[in-house]
């Protein structure tokens, strides 16, 4: 406890760097196994726009040079790694010549906002409901209603999104159908804009929450059943502590520890899972960017987005590693 030892911190940082390096290498290798030549795709797009293209070979060579794919693979690889360090993934082939980093910079805040909002809501609601399924003093209704609500977990997010859209946007008109903010507000740090963003973000966030809270609730239920049988919970009851205090301080406090690790790991998965939700709500985030890039075979964008997802996941695991000893006194910061 107390401050984090330097040796532990360095060890964790090395692990972080290695994780990112290996993952980044894999996302570089995989697209290169594909026989598709991105320069030809770009040329094809130009051709379909212009009708015909003269001296195609020359343009192809030029495009390859611009994309950096005329060089030996090993050179490309190190250039890519060097670029990744400063988030330079080259130029998008689909929206040539926009830099990938600009596309990501524009999409990332939306995704992070939506993701953090939905992840926090689903984590809190899911764990609380999971705990209530086990707690002896829960209202009777909870023990019936929560398992029933679990059916939403088996719905794909795209359907939950459409369902919410239909009820709350199309029928009730409480929330806007699509978009990340209203067309009439000025993007920036003003109240009207923030309000508009929250208003627009609510349905996509809920679409994710209702299909994911069951994961947390079921996990928490299992953990709570284990904790409920622990001697310290029985003694807490014998001590005559108030039931609610026992629930929070003795039961949830211990049962939630593995869920916090799962929380960090889920972050990466969730961005990927958000792809379709962002798509149907026309929400301009990483998911939509990735979706379009896959359709367009826009490798630099796919690489860039994947890299950012990996980085966020690795960073969240790193942060959980650092804070874990503060939430579980039995875990210590030790080397390795």
């Amino acid at each position: 406890m107390g401050r984090i030892p330097r040796k532990y911190l360095i060890n964790r940082l090395i692990t972080l760097a290695l994780t990112v390096l290996i993952a980044a290498s894999m996302i570089w290798v995989i697209p290169r196994l594909s026989p598709v030549d991105p320069a030809e795709i770009a040329l094809g797009r130009m051709a379909s726009g212009a009708g015909a293209v003269a001296n195609a070979e020359e343009i192809l060579a030029q495009l390859r040079a611009q994309m950096g794919i005329d060089q030996p693979l090993i050179v490309q690889y190190f250039k890519y790694l060097k670029g990744a360090l400063v988030f330079d993934f080259g130029l998008s082939t689909a929206t040539f010549p926009t830099p990938v980093s600009a596309l990501i910079a524009q999409a990332l805040p939306w995704t992070l906002g939506l993701m953090i909002l939905s992840l926090v809501i689903t984590f809190v609601i899911g764990n609380l409901l999971g705990a209530l399924m086990v707690w002896d003093h829960s209202p009777k209704l909870a023990k019936v209603a929560i398992p029933a609500a679990m059916v939403f977990t088996s719905i794909p997010p795209i359907l939950s999104g459409l369902l919410l859209m239909w009820i709350f946007a199309a029928k009730l008109r409480w929330f806007p159908l699509t978009g990340a903010y209203g067309l009439t507000v000025d993007p920036g740090w003003n109240w009207a804009f923030v309000q508009s963003v929250l208003h627009h973000g609510f349905l996509p966030a809920m679409a994710i929450v209702i299909v994911t809270f069951g994961f947390w609730a079921l996990g928490m239920r299992g953990l709570m059943i284990t904790v409920q049988g622990e001697d310290y919970v029985k003694l807490a009851e014998a001590k005559g502590l108030k039931p609610r205090y026992i629930l929070y301080r003795y039961m949830i406090r211990n049962a939630i520890l593995p869920q916090i690790t799962a929380f960090a790991l889920k972050i990466g998965l969730l961005i990927a899972g958000q792809v379709l939700v962002e798509r149907i709500f026309a929400y301009n985030g990483m998911g939509k960017l990735l979706y379009d890039a896959i359709l367009d075979q826009d490798f630099p964008v796919i690489q860039g987005v994947s890299y950012v997802i990996i980085l966020i996941t690795a960073l969240s695991v790193f942060i959980v590693d650092l804070i874990y000893p503060f939430i579980d006194p039995r875990i210590r910061h030790e080397g390795g």
Partner: peptide, 23 residues
């Protein structure tokens, strides 16, 4: 509940696991 411990206290069977590990 109010009578517990103030009138009737317990020394439990498994003291090894009878204390909350996070307190």
């Amino acid at each position: 509940r109010k009578r517990r411990w103030s009138k009737l206290a317990l020394i439990p069977q498994g003291a090894m696991n009878s204390l909350n590990p996070t307190m």
